[in-house]
Design a protein around this nucleic acid. Structure first.
Length: 581
RNA sequence: GGGCCGGUAGUUCAGUUUGGUUAGAAUACAUGCCUGUCACGCAUGGGGUCGCGAGUUCGAGCCUCGUCCGGCCCGCCA
């Protein structure tokens, strides 16, 4: 790291350098004045080195550093000395620089928050001064982690023959999927480009072109509301392969994931378990189950729909989970859980519990309707033992599954079952091809309109579209959807039928996706692929809750860049030029 | 579009339940002392439109209404 201005970095000097004269550059982390003795911690990307100043031996230098403050940028030359009192906590703790010459490269205002691992600054302030925040180790290390992960992925993909190809950022808007970010055209007034939600169609065209193994680490844009794990611009590891079946794709990318865990985390992962979408919904109430813990759903319709309890009898689904060892929960704790599911975010009307007491008795919130034998049957069905707590919800199937899923995750968290550092990976397979939307009274593609139906279900595309499964799959890690993909339609006729099932007229389909269907007339190979969320992959591997920590300059909740102040109005002249005024 | 939480010193927060004298703490900053610190220590000091607006009241950081900003979530995200 030697340059004209420095001989070493602030992280590399140790006892072996004692006696050498060195020049360092960096930021002042901290100044400690002890009267005749002054110490400065000098920081750069690589670490911290202590500079020592002695009033007796070098009074002029001590006078020079008098006005120095935090975050000033200085260049220092001096001799590497062994310390009187060593600091075991840092790699450079055995030595210090007995300074001889100091140059101020730049002064600094006092930063609005402390540049330390545990900063005193809140999120908002740190975002506004993100360039200062990035000086802090935790954030800096996240970006270094991201870099390392990116390099590992590129290496692996290159080694197995994948070619990285860039695709355009100015594309056209399509009605399907997420809202588009649009860019007005100056040369064609009244017309707009869209920023890509993903390079989906381009990678399929690249398959037609014969690049049978393509990938790209690429920015994608979606104009939807944000979350801790959703940013309007985010990065995908976008991949596509030709002459493959679903099995080839799952195997290929299981290899990549295995390599990443080994290379980055030093973990040998088990072969990735597969679960059908149907089973994921049935047992976890979610298409992205956190499988670090069991607490699987047990359907209780048969066991509970024979008494006078209307709520259960009229429900499409009665379903429960077992919280191990929670029979002792107090009234207050049970009320808390009830309130949890009644919150508008969950939206349940109530929660039924059965306590399997140590003495073999059962106590429940529905004792009025069910006797000990009934409750014993429930416990047996659920596999609950003495000391366990059974939590039961009822209602419309999908809604109830989703609600119980949230309760399951809540219980998992309360019981410490969602352990950091433990990774449970799942391939969720056999997604439905289409999803019915009540509001618009039509089917939507669950994945996207280019996803191939399972060949054995193709016949039902017209007769029973809702029952058709797709050759589509998601990779789920600890309850986070980290990636997903599908085998694509490569046949023009099948693609036409798909558009028809989605309610497109032939003209609409031709207008929007004609380029793709035209391309399919020139020898499209069978192909498929997937895309991983790069930001999410970083956060999941680091057990972080938010992807923002892994993005150098992220947007806030309202999709604003608080540092830039973006978005901003533009001038009338610009609007005019774009034909918007 | 909706739900919940927050906004008080440069910063992080307490104070709001029960309205009442001069709004506190820590840290940062400044000054002085200190020759082995590394979360240095000690002393002193400056620093506040209590997000903004309206209302209730003799009196509002505290109560009411509105509004803006931030965070988490639901909807949304093929």
């Amino acid at each position: 790291m030697k340059t004209t201005l420095r001989t070493h970095t602030c992280g590399e000097l140790n006892a072996s350098h004692i006696g050498e004269t060195v020049t360092l550059c960096g930021w002042i982390q901290k100044i400690r004045k002890l009267g005749g003795m002054t110490f400065i911690d000098l920081r750069d990307r690589y670490g911290i080195t202590q500079l020592a100043f002695n009033e007796e031996t070098n009074p002029e230098l001590c006078r020079q550093i008098e006005p120095f403050g935090r975050e000033w940028v200085i260049q220092v030359t001096g001799r590497v000395e062994e310390r009187y009192s060593k600091n075991k906590n840092i790699p450079t703790g055995d030595i210090e620089i007995l300074s001889e010459k100091i140059t101020v490269l730049n002064e600094s205002l006092t930063p609005p928050f402390t540049i330390e691992d545990e900063s005193d600054g809140g999120d908002e302030l740190r975002m506004k001064y993100r360039y200062l925040d990035l000086r802090r180790n935790p954030v800096k290390n996240n970006l270094l982690f991201r870099h390392k992960l990116g390099i590992a992925i590129r290496n692996y993909m290159n080694n197995i023959g994948f070619v990285e190809i860039e695709t355009p950022m100015l594309v056209n808007s399509t009605p399907e999927g997420a809202r588009d970010f649009v860019v007005p055209s100056r040369l064609s007034h009244g017309e707009f480009y869209a920023l890509p939600q993903s390079p989906q169609t381009f990678k399929q065209l690249l398959m037609v072109s014969g690049f049978d193994r393509y990938f790209q680490i690429v920015k994608c844009f979606r104009d939807e509301d944000l979350r801790a794990d959703r940013q309007p611009e985010f990065t995908q590891i976008d991949c596509e392969m030709s002459f493959v079946t679903q099995e080839d794709i799952l195997q290929t990318f299981e290899g990549l994931i295995k390599y990443i865990f080994k290379e980055i985390k030093g973990i040998d992962i088990e072969p990735i378990e597969r679960i059908t979408w149907h089973d994921a919904m049935k047992y976890y109430g979610s298409d992205k189950p956190d499988a670090r813990f069991g607490m699987r759903f047990v359907e209780l319709n048969k066991v509970l729909q024979h008494k006078d309890f209307k709520v259960f009898n009229e429900a499409e689904l009665v379903v429960g989970i077992v919280a191990k060892g929670c029979a002792h929960y107090s009234r207050k704790q049970l009320d808390e859980l009830t309130n949890f599911v009644k919150r508008p975010q969950v939206g349940a009307t109530g929660l039924v519990y059965v306590q399997c007491q140590e003495d073999g008795h059962f106590k429940s919130s529905v004792d009025k309707f069910y006797d000990q034998n009934d409750l014993q049957a429930v416990a047996k069905e659920c596999g609950a033992e003495a000391g366990d707590l059974i939590l039961i919800m009822a209602g419309p199937r999908m809604k109830t599954q989703t609600q119980l899923c949230q309760l399951r995750l809540e219980m998992g968290s309360r019981l410490g079952l969602r352990k950091a550092g433990e990774y449970k990976l799942l391939w969720v397979v056999d997604f439905p091809l289409l999803e019915w939307d009540e509001e618009t009274q039509r089917y939507y593609a669950m994945h996207h309109p280019f996803t191939a139906p399972k060949p054995e279900h193709e016949d039902m595309l017209e007769s029973n579209p809702g029952a058709v499964n797709a050759n589509a799959y998601d990779l789920v890690i600890n309850g986070t959807e980290v990636g997903g993909g599908s085998i694509r339609i490569h046949d023009k006729e099948l693609q036409k039928r798909m558009f028809k099932a989605l309610g497109f007229t032939e003209e609409e389909a031709q207008k929007q996706f004609g380029f793709l269907m035209n391309a399919f007339q020139y020898g499209a190979p069978p192909h498929g692929g997937l895309a991983f969320g790069f930001d999410r992959m970083c956060s999941v591997l680091c057990d972080a809750d938010t992807i923002r920590d892994f993005i150098a300059f992220p947007k806030n909740n309202a999709a604003r860049d608080v540092m830039l102040g973006a978005p901003t109005p533009i001038s009338d002249a610009q609007l005019k030029e774009l034909g918007l005024k």
